[in-house]
Amino acid sequence: MMPARRSTTMLANLVTWGLVLLISFPLIWMVVTSVRPQTELFQIPPTVIPRAITFEHYIKLLQETPFLRYFMNSMILATSTTIVVIVVGTLGAYSLVRFSYRGRETLAALVLFTYLLPSVVLIIPLYLMMVKLGLANTLTSLVIAYTTFALPYALWLLRSFMAGVPEDLESAALVDGASRIGAFIDVILPQALPGIISTALFTFILAWNEYLYALVMVNSDQARPLTTGVMNMLITSFNIEWSLLMAASVMMSIPLIIIFAFLQSYLTRGFGAGGVKG
């Protein structure tokens, strides 16, 4: 019995880790390519382990391309979208979960509906709207556009986090002398905080990774975020420098890596609450 079991575990380990490495291979390859000297890149046949490690591509990326500008734009864009969406969404979710008024149920259904709506349906009218408002080619236009998917998404997540705070806690605060808003600030907000943080992380990632709106709304390097910016580097270059693009890809994923390394528990929490539980 025992030896059989041990070998099954061994097999499970081997198969699982084999698949995990296979799945991660593209990402590993990205990192490997980005630190490999240009000369090694065009070797035929290519080798898996680089013979020398260099950061020349990263230096070039930061010094000779508009990458840093794109990075800053993305940072501003994702941060402002997250702040707007979290502030509005937290209040909205509290209202949807703990108050009763006519139209509340309809509104909740509408939020879920908009959460599923394809961007391409909204993008044409939104583009026309931005042109009319004179906001085309600005980061503001993107913050506005990003709320179309980020706000319903955040509301849906936050709603389920708020619903998870025991109602008795709020009742206790009310009896103890707090107003509704007082109870919200003293009790519900601290209790929902982990949920709010994970929603904020998801919103940030969503905004950080967005491509289509950025492609349509922004047409200048001044306001271009990373996604369209880096893609532009690929399209406009005469001679595609893959090491440079891989370095850009790594740099672009840094916020993600930070979140993964330090805040992973928030990530899995949000995942459970949002998508699947309904």
């Binding site: 025991p166 008795d168 009742s171 206790a172």
Partner: peptide, 12 residues
């Protein structure tokens, strides 16, 4: 003043 079945102590 009220005492709840779940006690409803503020966990934080």
């Amino acid at each position: 003043a009220m005492v709840f079945q779940s006690y409803a102590l503020y966990p934080h």
